[in-house]
């Protein structure tokens, strides 16, 4: 029992390190992708091809003056970036990173906790994600920050509904709320994206909105709000907010891969004749390849599509996505009923 707890702690530490590492290099990747899309070179000074750029950025963030505006609410101003970071890191606890591994006589899953309510946990943490932005925006005591915070919270509440409804359709086809079970149900190339294309479309749009990424980055819309909720932030506090955004992007890419693209499953995985451990490791690598593709997709969209207007955003959320998600739910229910009858 104690050894299993130790293994879980090691898994938690590894996931924590990997998450931070990927978030760090996402900033580099974002600048490189932007450069390619705009026919520029991008960062290339620090190290070969600029690969030390994230370290240089981090160092710069730490050495900058830690300034707090005079009229800001000091306690909340300091705690807000921490909340943003905390909620961003919480989700990774229930994502199944791979199958089972047998090592030193112990068999364990590459997952921190396989809870019965996996998907609801994700929805819960997503709904908490708004607090960091809201508190940060309000505590700055700046009208642009407050506007950004209010916009972002309204946006998150609106898109949570469509997101939950699109996930429900996936839950209905898989018959479980546990992420592990959902991945296992997609074994053998039966990926949910083939059965639930509409739910996938709705989910990915909502994921963009929940991450405050372009084209839905109304919360930090530079042309109207200077910097939105983090206008008054500087130094590593700003760094935390930006970092939280990249962690959110990484985690939502992981959730998209788990829900719709089979997680650590890949086609013909049982025909290769690999040993169980090798199969698990290959599966994990494939899972990360899927995640990297979706991170790239997030960046691709950011540098391709222009920003929405706020009323367009609300129209899309309430008048298109939610009715579509309900329709999808009804169609799924009808199909399941027919399958039971015949």
């Amino acid at each position: 029992m104690d050894a299993l707890i130790l293994i879980k702690i090691i898994i938690i530490l590894i996931i924590f390190a990997i998450t931070l590492f990927i978030a760090m290099y996402s900033t580099y990747a974002e600048r490189k992708v932007a450069a390619v899309m705009q026919d520029r070179i991008g960062p290339n000074r620090a190290g070969p091809w600029g690969i030390l750029q994230p370290l240089a950025d981090g160092g710069k963030m730490f050495f900058k003056e830690d300034f707090i505006p005079a009229l800001a609410n000091k306690k909340l101003f300091i705690i807000a970036p921490g909340i943003a970071m905390f909620t961003a890191l919480m989700t990774s606890a229930i994502i199944p990173w791979g199958g089972t591994i047998t090592m030193f006589g112990y068999t364990f899953d590459l997952q921190v906790a396989d809870v019965d309510i996996g998907i609801l946990y994700i929805l819960g943490v997503v709904s908490m994600g708004v607090y960091g932005i809201m508190i940060g925006g309000w505590a700055s005591n700046n009208k642009y920050s407050l506007f950004g915070a209010v916009r972002s919270s309204a946006q998150m509440i609106s898109y949570e509904l469509a997101m939950g409804l699109s996930i429900l359709a996936v839950v209905m086809t898989s018959g479980s709320l546990s992420l592990k079970d959902i991945v296992e149900a997609q074994d053998g190339g039966k990926w949910n994206v083939l059965y639930q294309p509409l739910a996938f479309l709705i989910f990915i749009v909502c994921a963009f909105a929940e991450c405050n990424r372009a084209p839905f980055d109304l919360a930090e819309c530079e042309s109207e709000l200077i910097g939105g909720y983090h206008t008054e932030y500087g130094s590593m506090k700003l760094g935390f907010f930006l970092f939280a955004e990249y962690i959110n992007m990484f985690i939502s890419s992981a959730v998209i891969s788990v829900l719709f693209f089979g997680g650590y499953n890949f086609p013909f995985m049982h025909e290769l004749g690999l040993s169980p451990n090798a199969l698990t490791i290959t599966g994990t690598l494939v899972f990360f390849a899927k995640i990297f593709f979706f991170i790239f997709f997030f960046m691709w969209v950011r540098w391709t599509l222009p920003r929405f207007r706020y009323d367009q955003l609300m129209h899309l959320g309430w008048k298109s996505l939610i009715p579509l998600a309900i329709l999808n739910l009804m169609i799924t229910g009808g199909f399941l009923l027919l399958k039971d009858l015949f």
Binding site: I117, L123, S127, M128, M134, A154, I157
Partner: peptide
């Protein structure tokens, strides 16, 4: 488990956000 997570989603996640708003 269900009750605990629904408590967070509904009360801490939705209603309190509106209050704060």
């Amino acid at each position: 488990q269900f009750l605990s997570i629904v408590n967070i989603i509904v009360y801490a996640g939705a209603i309190m956000v509106l209050f704060l708003f």
